[in-house]
Write a protein that binds this DNA or RNA. Structure first.
Length: 884
DNA sequence: ATGATCACG
DNA sequence: ACGTACGTGATCATG
C-alpha cells in the first residue's frame, strides 16, 4: 500500500495572512463592492501548496466561536487584539465556499481552536505510513513537529513557506519541538495575550531552556540562579509561567469526529469552482482552469479553422448565411482615415478571412453587407458604418454589437480590445492586439497567416459572445436599452460623424494672427513686471515668480506645489497688476492652442471636421467627443465664443440651427423624485431658479427675486443635482460653510421629496450595489459601502447624480433617433451635425428652417413623457456663433 | 505617463 | 473629524 500524506491547514491564520498579503485591498473588489483579496490570496496559497505537496488527504481547520476551553482558565486569552476589519470578516464565508469548491473538507469544533484540531489529527494519523504536513501562519504549531510531522509556516504574506522539522528547530533555537511550549511559557506571546514572565523575552527564555530544559526545570532549580532582577521576576511570576505554558499547549486529544477516509482529496470541483470564480470575478484564474471536462464549457485552447481568401473575386455567395459575425480590423483609432487591415466573417460552422481592403471591392460582399435581411453581429457598429461608408458600402442588418452590449452590462468594462472584452466574459481563445501587432514604434502587421488566424479568432469570439451578452442584457432588463436606444443610435451617430461640420479655416487663420499679436504683447508686459523671462505656460515657474519672487500669499497648494488656478489668481489680482495680465494671457493662450490651432490641425480635405462620438465611455450614459472634441467649444466668454464664427453651414444658402433642452436635469429630478412643488413650477412654466429662490428664501413674488438671490438659488439647484455638500456650495457661492448649510437645510425643508429621493437612492445603491436611469442604464458603485469617508461620500453623490444626468442623456438619445427618422421620412435636406449633451445642432437650407424648427421642437419635447413638460429653445444663424 | 489647467454640459 | 461639488477632452510641462 502506498504511503498517505495528510495536509492540515490552519484556515483562520492563513486567511488572516492572505488578507494582509497586499497593502491596498481596496483594489480587490467585485463590481458589487465585495472585497476579495483574502479569498484570492487564500486560493493562490492553497493551490501552490497542493501542487507542491500532492497530498492524498486534506483538512482545513477553523476556530469556532469567540471563546475556547482556554478562556475557562484565563479569561484574557487573546484579549486586546484589535478587532478584525469588516473587509476581512465579510470574506470568511467565501473562503469556506472556496475550500468546498476546491474539493476540500473544512472543520471546526466548538470551544476548540484550529490548532487543537490540527494537533489532534496530526498526532492521531501520523505514522510510518502517513506523513503529515501542517500549514499555518503561526509558529505555535511547530511544537507538533516530529519524524512524521512537518510544519510549514508562511512568511512574507503567504508567498513563501519556512519548513519546521525537529532538526530545523534544533538548529534555529537549540530546542526540541515540545520545548516551544516552554519558550512561550517563559517569554509569552503578545499576539495571543499570553503573559509569560515579566521582562523575559525570546533570548532570555532560550538561555534558561538550554540550561534547565523546561519551565518545570527552571523552577526546580530556581535556587541555583544568581540573585538578579530576572530571578525576582521568575519567582513572582511563577503561577503566570505555568499558566502561559498551559495556554500555549496544543490539545492533541480533542474530541474530533473526523474520519481520515472522509478527507481523501481528489482535486477541484469544477462545477462549483467555475461559478465561484465568476462570482468573485477572478478572470485570470478562470482563464487558467481547464474546463474541458465540464459540461457546456468551451475549451480554453482551441485550434481554429478558417478559409483565407486573398482575392475579392474568390468571394462567393455561398460563403454567407443568414446570420453571421462580421469583423473589420483597423489599427488607427481614428477610423475616419484608418486603413483597413483585413476583414473576417463567419458563424459556428465556417470562418473566412480576407487581408487588407481587398474584400471591400467584392460586389458579393457589398450585397451581403447591404442586405438588411442578412443579420450581422459586429464589434463597434459605429466604426463599421463609417469605415464601410468610405468604400461606398451602406452596412445594414446589424443585430448586435458586442462592444456596445458589454458597455451597457457594465460601464466599467471599457475593453478597447475585443480580446479584453472576450476575456472579461470568459472567452480566452484570442490574443490581444498588442500581442499580435505590438505597440508604439514596434507596431506592425504580422505575416498573412498569423494575421488571418487572429482575425478569424475575432469573428469566432463575436459568435460566442453575442448570445452570452444578449442574455446578460435581458437579465438586467436592458434589452430595450440596447435594441431600441443604443444600437439605433450608433447608426445616427455614424451619419453625424460622416456628415462632419464645415469649418471656415480662413476665419481661424485671421484669429490666429490676431491672437498671436495680443499674446506677444501681454507676454512682454508680464515679463517686464516680473523682471525676468520665464515659461508662462509652466504653473511651476509661474508659482516661483508669484509666490517666491513677488511674495504673494499662497492661497492653495497642489500635490506638486503652488496652485495658480483661476480661483486663486482671482483673489490675488487686487494685490498685483501682473495677475490680471496672467489671467488674460491664460484665456487667450487656451483659445489659441486648443481651439484655433487645434481645430486647424483636424480639418479634413473636405473642409470639415469629423469628430468621433465615443458611445461606450462615460459612466452616466452621456456621449463624449474626440478628435476634435466638439462638445467643449467656448461659449461662456465672448472672446472664446468667437470661435463659433468658424463653424459654418456647408453652403452659403444654408444656415446653422440649434435647439437645446431647457433645464432638462432639473426636470428629470422633479420627475424621479416625484416632487410636487418642483413639478408644479415646471408645469406652470415658471423660471425654476426664481421659483426655488421664492420657496427657499421666502420671497413672496417673482418680481422681488433679485439677481443675486436667483444666482444663489441657481447654485443650490446645481448642487442638488450633483449631490450637494455644504463645502461645495460654499466654494461655489463664496460664502461660509455655515451659510451654505443653512441654504441646504432650508431647501430640504421646502422640498422634502427631494431629500427623500436622495436618501432612498443612496440606500438603494448600498443595497443593490448599483443605480439605474429611467431606461435601466446601470452604474455600479463598488465604493458605496467603503469605510473611508471620502471614498464613500463620493459614491453617495454619484448615486444621486447618475440617475439624473443619465436619464437626461437617455432622453436626448431617444430624441436623436426619432429626429433622424423624421428627417428621412420628411425627405428633408436638413442634417443633424452635433450633440452637446442637451443640445442638437443642424445645418439646413434657409428655406427649410421654419419646418425644421417646428419638427425639432415637436420631436424633442415629445421624445419621452415625464410628469413635467420638456421645453426646448431654438435659434438660427449663418454661423454657430449666430445661432445662440 | 501624470498632473495642472481650463474649455463645455 | 474626515475634505468635496457631477460628467467629459485637449494642451502643456515635467518626470
Amino acid at each position: 500500500m502506498s504511503k498517505n500524506k495528510l495536509l492540515l491547514i490552519d484556515g483562520n491564520s492563513i486567511a488572516f495572512r492572505a488578507f494582509y498579503a497586499v497593502q491596498n485591498y481596496e483594489s480587490f473588489k467585485t463590481k458589487t463592492g465585495l472585497h476579495t483579496n483574502a479569498v484570492l490570496f487564500f486560493n493562490n496559497m492553497l493551490e501552490s501548496i497542493l501542487e507542491r505537496e500532492s497530498p492524498t488527504h486534506v483538512l482545513i481547520a477553523f476556530d469556532a466561536g469567540k471563546t475556547t476551553f482556554r478562556h475557562g482558565f484565563f479569561t484574557d486569552y487573546k484579549a486586546g487584539r484589535s478587532k478584525t476589519p469588516g473587509e476581512f470578516k465579510e470574506q470568511m464565508p467565501y473562503i469556506r465556499e472556496l475550500i468546498e469548491a476546491q474539493g476540500i473538507k473544512h472543520y471546526e469544533l466548538m470551544d476548540y481552536e484550529a490548532d487543537d484540531i490540527i494537533g489532534t489529527m496530526a498526532k492521531r494519523e501520523a505514522n510510518e505510513n502517513c506523513e503529515v504536513v501542517i500549514v499555518s501562519g503561526d509558529k505555535d504549531l511547530t511544537q507538533l513537529a516530529d519524524d512524521h510531522i512537518r510544519v510549514e509556516v508562511t512568511s512574507r504574506g503567504v508567498s513563501e513557506l519556512v519548513t519546521y522539522t525537529p532538526d530545523f528547530i534544533q538548529e534555529k533555537y537549540g530546542l526540541k519541538p515540545l520545548q516551544i511550549i516552554d519558550m512561550k511559557g517563559l517569554a509569552g506571546d503578545s499576539s495571543d495575550n499570553i503573559p509569560g514572565v515579566t521582562k523575559v523575552g525570546e533570548k532570555t527564555a532560550l538561555k534558561l531552556l538550554h540550561e534547565y530544559g523546561s519551565v518545570e526545570g527552571v523552577y526546580e532549580n530556581i535556587d541555583e540562579l544568581k540573585k538578579s532582577k530576572m530571578k525576582e521576576n521568575l519567582i513572582n511570576d511563577r503561577e503566570q509561567a505555568f499558566l502561559s505554558k498551559k495556554l500555549a499547549t496544543i490539545d492533541t486529544d480533542s474530541p474530533i469526529e473526523v474520519e481520515m477516509s472522509s478527507l481523501a482529496y481528489s482535486g477541484k470541483d469544477l462545477d462549483k469552482l467555475v461559478p465561484f470564480y465568476r462570482e468573485m470575478e477572478f478572470k485570470q484564474l478562470l482563464s487558467k482552469l481547464d474546463t474541458s471536462g465540464m459540461t457546456g464549457e468551451s475549451e480554453t485552447t482551441e485550434e481554429i479553422k478558417f478559409e483565407l481568401v486573398t482575392s475579392s473575386s474568390d468571394i462567393t455567395a455561398d460563403m454567407f448565411s443568414d446570420e453571421m459575425s462580421f469583423y473589420v480590423e483597423f489599427l488607427d483609432k481614428n477610423y475616419h482615415n484608418a486603413d483597413i487591415v483585413g476583414i473576417a466573417w463567419g458563424d459556428t460552422d465556417k470562418l473566412f478571412v480576407v487581408p487588407g481592403d481587398e474584400a471591400l471591392h467584392s460586389t458579393v460582399l457589398k450585397e451581403w453587407l447591404e442586405d438588411e435581411t442578412k443579420v450581422k453581429n459586429v464589434y463597434d457598429a459605429k466604426a463599421n458604418y463609417v469605415l464601410l461608408n468610405r468604400y461606398n458600402i451602406q452596412l445594414q442588418g446589424v443585430k448586435f454589437d458586442s462592444l456596445l452590449g458589454a458597455y451597457l452590462i457594465d460601464t466599467n468594462d471599457k475593453s478597447e480590445d475585443l480580446a479584453d472584452l472576450a476575456f472579461n466574459h470568459e472567452y480566452f481563445a484570442l490574443e490581444t492586439d498588442e500581442t499580435v501587432y505590438g505597440k508604439g514604434a514596434k507596431l506592425a502587421i504580422p505575416e498573412e497567416t498569423v494575421l488571418a488566424d487572429h482575425l478569424a479568432r475575432k469573428a469566432k469570439a463575436l459568435t460566442v459572445l453575442t448570445p452570452q451578452l444578449m442574455e446578460k442584457l435581458a437579465d438586467k432588463e436592458q434589452s430595450d436599452l440596447f435594441f431600441e436606444m443604443e444600437l439605433p443610435l450608433s447608426k445616427v451617430l455614424a451619419d453625424m460623424e460622416i456628415a462632419g461640420i464645415t469649418v471656415n479655416a480662413q476665419r481661424l487663420q485671421e484669429m490666429k494672427q490676431e491672437f498671436a499679436i495680443r499674446l506677444a504683447d501681454i507676454e512682454k508686459n508680464i515679463f517686464e513686471q516680473a523682471g525676468e523671462e520665464f515659461n508662462l505656460n509652466s504653473p511651476k515657474q509661474l508659482g516661483v515668480i508669484l509666490f517666491e519672487k513677488m511674495g504673494l500669499p499662497v492661497i492653495k497648494k497642489t500635490k506638486t506645489g503652488y496652485s495658480t488656478a483661476v480661483d486663486v489668481l482671482e483673489q490675488l489680482k487686487e494685490q498685483a497688476p501682473i495677475v490680471e495680465d496672467i489671467l488674460t494671457y491664460r484665456q487667450i493662450a487656451k483659445i489659441q492652442s486648443t481651439y484655433v490651432e487645434g481645430l486647424l490641425k483636424v480639418i479634413h480635405h473636405d473642409g470639415k471636421v469629423h469628430t468621433r462620438y465615443v458611445q461606450t465611455l462615460t459612466q452616466t450614459g452621456r456621449l463624449s467627443s474626440v478628435d476634435p472634441n466638439l462638445q467643449n467649444i467656448p461659449v461662456r466668454l465672448e472672446e472664446g465664443r468667437k470661435i463659433r464664427q468658424a463653424f459654418i453651414p456647408r453652403d452659403p444658402d444654408w444656415q446653422i440651427f440649434s435647439s437645446d433642452y431647457s433645464q432638462i436635469e432639473l426636470r428629470v429630478l422633479a420627475d424621479i423624485a416625484k416632487d410636487q412643488h418642483m413639478q408644479d413650477a415646471f408645469k406652470e412654466g415658471q423660471d425654476i431658479h426664481t421659483s426655488t429662490a421664492m420657496r427657499v428664501f421666502g420671497v413672496p413674488t417673482p418680481e422681488e427675486v433679485t439677481g443675486n438671490i436667483r444666482r444663489q438659488a441657481k447654485a443650490v439647484n446645481f448642487g442638488i443635482v450633483y449631490g450637494i455638500s455644504d463645502y461645495g456650495l460654499s466654494q461655489n457661492l463664496g460664502i461660509s460653510r455655515q451659510e451654505a448649510q443653512t441654504f441646504i437645510d432650508k431647501y430640504f425643508e421646502k422640498y422634502p421629496d427631494i431629500k427623500t429621493y436622495m436618501e432612498e437612492i443612496v440606500r438603494e445603491a448600498k443595497d443593490k450595489g448599483y443605480v439605474e436611469t429611467l431606461w435601466h442604464r446601470r452604474r455600479y458603485l463598488p465604493d458605496i459601502n467603503a469605510r473611508n469617508f471620502n471614498i464613500r461620500s463620493f459614491a453617495e453623490r454619484t448615486a444621486i447624480n447618475t440617475p439624473i444626468q443619465g436619464s437626461a442623456a437617455d432622453i436626448l438619445k431617444i430624441a436623436m433617433i426619432e429626429m433622424a427618422k423624421r428627417l428621412k421620412a420628411e425627405k428633408m435636406a436638413a442634417t443633424m451635425l452635433l450633440q452637446v449633451h442637451d443640445e442638437l445642432v443642424f445645418e439646413a437650407p434657409k428655406s427649410e428652417i421654419p419646418k425644421l424648427e417646428a419638427l425639432v421642437k415637436e420631436v424633442m419635447e415629445n421624445a419621452v413623457s415625464l410628469s413635467v413638460p420638456l421645453k426646448v429653445d431654438s435659434s438660427t444663424g449663418n454661423t454657430w456663433y449666430e445661432a445662440k
